[in-house]
Amino acid sequence: MARKREFAYWVYAREIRDSTVLEENHEEERSKPYVITPLGSKIRRVLITGRVSQKNAEENMTRMTVADSSGNFYLTAFSNDFGSQGKIMLDGLELNDNVMVMGRLSSFQNEDKIYFNINPEIAVKVNDTSMKYWNLRASHVARRKIYAIRAARNSETPSKEELMKMGYSEEESECAVRAAKNYPDYNTADIEAVASGSSAATAQPEANSGHSDFILDYIRNNDEDGRGCRYEDILAAANNAQISQGDVDEVLNNLGSDGEIFEVSLKRYKAI
């Protein structure tokens, strides 16, 4: 029977770095364990982009560090039967190249710490536009997962079905339940800041600082039920103050990136 292709997750380096949970695969002997990330992704393969910041090529092995906006990915390829193609591809890349890498995630446990390494299957030089594209999608995926996690944490008995009813996809819902179980106290603010930053940088907003105070004050003073301010209410108040929807969205993005506010659930904002 044909095996289903392993999904390649588009994740930030920070999400992998902060992972502390491994899940053995009992169905496949000798297979690598899944990495359960703080956003609940169950990963064995990743697709990442970044800039080559370090390269060390030897005859039998090439090591490389690729940096994205949140941290570093560590790549290793050997010149054995399985990795030789990966090594050839890494050897063809230079320092400061923008690259796309798809590869298998390996983990090494040393005392209390787990270290992660990517064994590349594909590693190619890409242009800025491709990097922006990756950032847009990775940011969107991360932000939606973070909102789903918040919803799961707010529920006494979070379930996939409950989250799907709220509009999250099956994958997002499963990840949120997994994250709530394995990382109940993980602070998602840093990853969210990276994700919001990526999205905002790609969208090239010109922040309208004159409106920030108005919107921040509104959110501070109008969280009446403690569940956060509704986007529709913010928008209505902003419209009354002659602030356009586009400006509201930019300001909300920037306030999120600056750590002034956070989204407690989809379309609900709280001041920090």
Partner: peptide, 14 residues
């Protein structure tokens, strides 16, 4: 295309 795509993804959060 990225401009259109960006708007499409952001619409998800509005």
């Amino acid at each position: 295309f990225l401009k259109t795509f960006s708007r499409m993804l952001e619409a998800d959060f509005q």
